[in-house]
Write a protein that binds this DNA or RNA. Structure first.
Lengths: 341, 341
DNA sequence: CCAATTTCTTTACGCGCGTAAATTTTTTGT
DNA sequence: ACAAAAAATTTACGCGCGTAAAGAAATTGG
């Protein structure tokens, strides 16, 4: 296939019989050249396996095809999953996605942004750390680079926000829990990493009021992103002190619920809705792991596909010049009933 | 701080009072210039917030500072964790790491390699998909780019291999299980994604022979990387058909064990080593999630830190020109005793 | 078949930086 | 303080491609 090494576009254009500017145009957008020349170029690419030097390309192009995808913690399978989804969409749309994780560290998040800048990306999809984020840095960044915020909204920054409707999440699952047993207590972190948590608490309070029940929020100590451990330790404390006034616990998120389940296990408390179980536990997020907890976790799941599709499409539209006012899109989740509640 | 926008190294050198070649040299290696000039340059950087254009840099440099980190599945927290570790080491060593995931797909793995090539990386750290990997493509790649294989060895490819000592893993935990209760059965996938699985099975067989017990391997159906689901379904089948001859099950990896635990739960089988429990389950890998299963999973853990350190150091040494013959480094794991076995 | 339009070719310059060679300046050792 | 060594400067070219302008060629429509 490769008869001779092509070193640059000059050589390639010579051997393919097409002028270099036309070849350059082709690589910028294959549809911008006549069908017959496109075919000739593509045949030559196939034959000589030539690819333009991306560094030289990006140096002069005002807009690269790079897209940054930034998540707060890649070790969290929820973010890994949505990042994978976004990555695929970028690829399909002809962009070059690059994955970044802040690893739960606000300073690293700023560093990532700095790094990203030097890549002159066409756009960036970012799920901010949340409360700990350097909002000023984010805002400044979004002024220079088309930026779409997803998962966790901070302010009216960037092109817009796409995420889940946390109010609906909690309303829906609270409703379910109230109808099928004792009204839930709400289990959360005192200082949550993520502003979604506040919406969820508020929605819980609303739901309880609607049903005429007395709400009870248990807020546990703990900083950072080790939610399982925070849930486990907080769970132990709350359980030993009898802080839960009912037999049903709605957790602010699935990872907290997973930790709570572990605490329950360690205390010999049977969780579930069947006979012999003393409490019910539910989560929120539809975490990839929630299916495999013991008992499997009842939760309300993000619509991963819809969130990533909306986010990616909104970014691509903006890159293509379709200016739109800042908009917040919040998608509904769906209840996944399992054994835990 | 920023009085005036610096557009390129020319302007920067003018305003900082240092010639451009020296500035260029500085950015290549700050230690290569006199301390006093280094200080002046760094002061100017601070003052004008200048950063060289990475595309222009990488275009001419024969060796970039890019390092690729490739894992088979980023959605697996084990890989996410080790990737994070490697990423940090690259950063600390002055490289620019970029994360890639094959998402369990051999074709994507080849695409990633292709993509990586165009980045002209100084080196690549890759955990191959394993059995499904296109070994030829990997080999060809490793001839062009300094490549260090980690986690899962395929052949004597690249600079070397760094991973865990799977024989030791299984020997150690088998030993533990044999000494503390009934000898284990071995629970694995019939067609494992990863060659480590074969070593583990073999080591299990060896251990059983050493103890004079009859080994029993239960190999379950299932393709791909959804190990939990494969473990759950295979667990149901094996349990319903009474395929386990003892009350102890050693799983080929933690994710399989997690699925098996779920199957046990769903069948009402109590897992653990305390009274009232009918079977013991152990895993292998020290998966980040293993602490939070119910019961918490007894496992033998990779030495994440040591593996990533050895892998990164070996790559950096090779990049720095320290040629060494191909070498396989396998690090021991340590037993983590929890409630499941 | 010819004019209008589209597409391609030729020519040329610039991007921001790496890097080499020759020269000048600064530092080092004694 | 002086010669040797080290470091910085000046000058100049190249990397691979984007891109603009002007003209030539191919395509289209009637």
């Amino acid at each position: 296939m490769a008869q001779q090494k092509i070193r640059n576009m000059e050589e390639f254009s010579a051997i393919s019989g097409i002028s270099r500017p036309t070849v350059s145009k082709f690589f910028h957008d294959p549809d911008s050249v006549r069908l017959s020349t496109r075919a000739r170029i593509e045949a030559a690419i196939e034959k000589y396996d030539y690819r333009p030097n991306i560094f030289a390309m990006n140096q002069n192009r005002k807009l690269t095809k790079n897209v940054g995808i930034v998540v707060p913690l890649l070790a969290d399978p929820y973010f890994a999953e949505i990042a994978r989804n976004l990555e695929q969409r970028c690829l399909d749309a002809g962009y070059r996605p690059t994955l970044f994780s802040a690893h739960g560290d606000p300073d690293l998040e700023v560093e990532v942004l700095d790094n990203l800048r030097s890549m002159k990306p066409a756009g960036v999809l970012i799920a901010p750390l949340g409360r700990a984020s350097n909002v000023r840095a984010l805002e400044k960044f979004s002024e220079d680079v088309p930026t779409l915020i997803f998962d966790s909204s901070v302010e009216e920054i960037g092109l817009g926000f796409v995420g889940s409707d946390n109010m609906q999440f909690t309303a829906h699952i609270s409703d379910y829990l109230c109808r099928t047993g004792e009204p839930p207590c709400f289990f959360e972190m005192k200082t949550p990493a993520n502003p979604n948590a506040h919406r969820r608490r508020q929605s819980y309070l609303n739901a309880m009021e609607k049903f005429g029940f007395t709400p009870q929020v248990v807020s546990v100590e703990g900083e950072g992103w080790a939610f399982e451990e925070i849930g486990r330790l907080g769970g132990h404390k709350a359980l030993s002190e009898g802080q839960f006034s009912t037999n049903t616990i709605l957790c602010s998120n699935d990872r907290l619920a997973i930790g709570l389940l572990t605490a329950c296990y360690e205390r010999g408390i049977r969780v579930g809705r069947t006979e012999g179980c003393s409490i019910r536990v539910a989560g929120q997020d539809g975490h990839p792991h929630s299916r495999y907890t013991c008992p499997p976790l009842t939760t309300i799941s993000h619509d991963y596909d819809a969130v990533s599709k909306h986010a990616a499409d909104a970014l691509f539209a903006a890159i293509d010049g379709h200016v739109e006012p800042w908009k917040s899109t919040r998608l509904e989740g769906k209840l996944i009933m399992r054994d835990s509640a």
